[in-house]
């Protein structure tokens, strides 16, 4: 009887694992199947055609996403890394650091659409027009907590002896942090930033009413701009088969970017690249 229960429990655990893996496999297979058959050179080089016409691409959305993400990184990466440096190097064990860490974790769980509303009310409402700038700010703010936490974790992996060695040579603390500790952890920090980058690359909700989307070519920060996830959303809920195909192709491009980033992070953290560098 007890062995039977044991077997049953094992079976249920295996079953749930299969049930979890199944949708992932289904999503990937379908995405590759649909996306690869819709990808073409035109997808990367042309702007969308008017509704109902076949052909066209998402060049404007790809460039738009690049502009938004560049702006977001300019905001999120320096502030996030500095916050992480504080947590790992200056504030270790202090009440302030614990509060910052806790707030960063909680902030990570705040729905991205709420971030969109806040930025809307801060920038779009005041300026009275949607803009690429506001979209970039929304994404940048979302990067900060992720970058802060991963930077901290990477810095904590740097052995203490390295720091002590630098200080013993009379190197000032700020320089020891920047060119010894941070440099040692830099592969990890860079991949952490890429992870945050990949996460906001797929964010749609905060862009709906900040960057708004644009079916024409635009790189002006003061005007609405197209973005890959936004375009996927608009196309997915449109009634045209041709646009659905473009949405699948866009989704494939997005997912390749994200899987690459996640795999890289996995590689860096598991292979102990940090140890090699130190």
């Amino acid at each position: 009887m007890r062995t039977a229960t044991d077997g049953l429990a094992t079976g249920l655990a295996v079953l749930s694992t299969v049930l979890v893996v199944a949708p992932l496999v289904a999503i990937f297979v379908y995405l590759i199947y649909k996306g690869a058959s819709s990808l073409s050179l035109a997808f990367f080089t042309q702007v969308p055609k008017p509704e109902g016409e076949t052909g066209g691409g998402m060049a404007n959305a790809i460039v738009g996403s690049a502009v938004l993400l560049g702006l977001a990184s300019l905001i999120g990466v320096p502030i996030g890394i500095s916050g992480g440096i504080f947590l790992a190097e200056f504030g270790r064990g202090t009440k302030l650091a614990n509060a910052v860490r806790f707030t960063a974790d909680v902030l990570n769980g705040v729905p991205s659409i709420v971030m969109g509303i806040a930025v809307y009310s801060l920038i779009v409402y005041q300026q009275k027009h949607f803009s690429a700038f506001s979209g970039g700010v929304a994404l940048g703010i979302m990067m900060i907590p992720t970058v802060t936490r991963t930077t901290e974790e990477m810095l904590l992996m740097v052995p203490h002896a390295v720091r002590e060695a630098a200080l013993a040579l009379g190197v000032p603390n700020w320089r020891s942090v920047l060119s010894i500790t941070v440099k040692t952890a830099s592969p990890g920090i860079i991949t952490g930033c890429m992870l945050a980058f990949a996460r906001v690359a797929g964010e749609t909700a905060p862009l709906i009413f900040t960057a708004l989307g644009n079916s024409n070519w635009s790189v002006n920060l003061n005007e609405p701009i197209a973005a890959l996830p936004l375009q996927i959303y608009t196309y997915a809920i449109s009634p045209y088969d041709d646009l659905h195909r473009l949405a699948w192709a866009g989704a494939l491009v997005l997912i390749v970017l994200i899987v690459a980033a996640v795999s890289l992070v996995r590689y860096v953290t598991s292979r102990g690249v940090l140890k090699g560098a130190s």
Partner: peptide, 30 residues
């Protein structure tokens, strides 16, 4: 330089609280 660097890092860490405060005030006002 050391002190400046320290406070710069503290400032960036505090920005996390700033973000929460910013969201809260904007939402309440609006």
């Amino acid at each position: 330089a050391d002190r400046g660097f320290h406070w710069l890092m503290v400032l960036c860490a505090l920005s996390i609280f700033g973000i929460v405060a910013l969201i809260a005030t904007e939402l309440v006002v609006r």
